[in-house]
């Protein structure tokens, strides 16, 4: 079942000026409910532009955005409700923290929803728990935290609104491998616990291959591919044609195939490669035994 559908979406920055920029052109796509969708594309391919359309921060130049089959711009006055339902964590969200304490900052979204003080407190604790923030941190100033902690506070601030769809623009950018894994693991746990629909934007094929169910590929403002992870990575040749770094292990398999070793198509984890190689070795042993 598709949670969000984009119909023939185009987006133009500064139309009618010499700086006109067609950031998105003719995008049609479906975001599946209860799944993690990864959006990948090279720098400037229009990923951030696309995610800002999903919660109505910007209005498409043409085309429609459907949430549960309903056009989100049907009643522009009620766009705020859409923003509570589709939570967006922007790129480098740690620079948006402003309150005196972490607790107050996480409460900003729920407060704007007009919830009761008790409900807000509950949601703040829940969001802190989900994002792995220690209770003791909640009374610190957000400006005193480390980069990775700030990032979690910012994510918690959106999760506290309990959105049906959680969209994150490069949640792992600029973190070390451990920090990236923690954040991505946390998002997967979150998805499994809450059954929310999650969308993650990233440059990194490797991360996406490991953490996402579905993959959407953008290049130069156009949709190149969409489908289940293994379907998309099976087309690794096309991916490298549009300038995306396919996972290292996929590239290795591709090179092996070019040298005549019949590796399977669509390998994107080391485990898969291992099994494929073992299988190949076995069949080879059988063949050589046959000759003897």
């Amino acid at each position: 079942m598709s949670k969000i559908t984009l119909e023939n979406i185009s987006y133009v920055y500064s139309p009618g000026t010499p700086f006109e920029m067609h950031a998105l052109e003719g995008i049609n796509l479906n975001i599946r409910e209860n799944a993690i969708t990864g959006l990948i594309g090279h720098t400037g391919s229009g990923k951030s532009t696309l995610v800002q359309l999903l919660n109505g921060l910007t209005r498409p130049t043409s085309g429609r955005v459907l949430l549960d089959g309903k056009d989100i711009w049907q009643e522009p006055k009620k766009i705020k409700q859409v923003r509570f339902r589709v939570g967006l964590v922007m790129q480098y969200p740690e620079y948006q923290l402003f309150e005196e304490t972490v607790r107050a900052d996480i409460a900003f979204g729920p407060k704007n929803m007009g919830l009761s003080a008790q409900e807000i407190a509950e949601r703040v604790s829940e969001a802190a728990l989900l994002t792995g923030l220690d209770e003791s941190l909640l009374d610190h100033s957000p400006f005193d935290l480390s980069g990775g902690q700030k990032r979690r506070v910012a994510i918690a601030g959106v999760i506290a609104m309990r959105p049906e769809v959680l969209v994150l623009d490069e949640p792992a950018a600029g973190l070390d491998p451990r920090g990236r894994d923690t954040i991505l693991n946390m998002l997967r746990d979150y998805q499994q616990k809450t059954g929310a629909t999650v969308m993650i934007v990233s440059h990194s094929m490797e991360d996406m291959a490991r953490f996402c169910d579905d993959i959407i590929v953008l290049a130069h403002g156009k949709l190149v591919m969409q489908g289940r992870g293994h379907e998309v990575f099976a087309r690794s040749r096309e991916l490298s044609d549009v300038g995306l770094n396919i996972p290292e292990i996929s590239r290795l398999c591709l090179m092996l195939r070019e040298r005549g070793i019949p590796m399977d198509d669509g390998i994107f984890t080391v485990e898969q490669a291992e099994q494929c190689l073992l299988r190949l070795l076995e069949s080879r042993e059988q063949r050589t035994e046959g000759y003897v």
Binding site: V89, Q96, F108, N112, V158
Partner: peptide
């Protein structure tokens, strides 16, 4: 944009509440 995504509203309400709404922008 980021504060709007958390439901901040800069265009409606009384003058005082609009001035208050600027805090989440000005501090960062």
């Amino acid at each position: 944009s980021a504060q709007k995504a958390r439901g901040a509203d800069f265009t409606s309400g009384s003058l005082i509440s609009r001035a208050k709404a600027l805090i989440p922008i000005l501090i960062p």
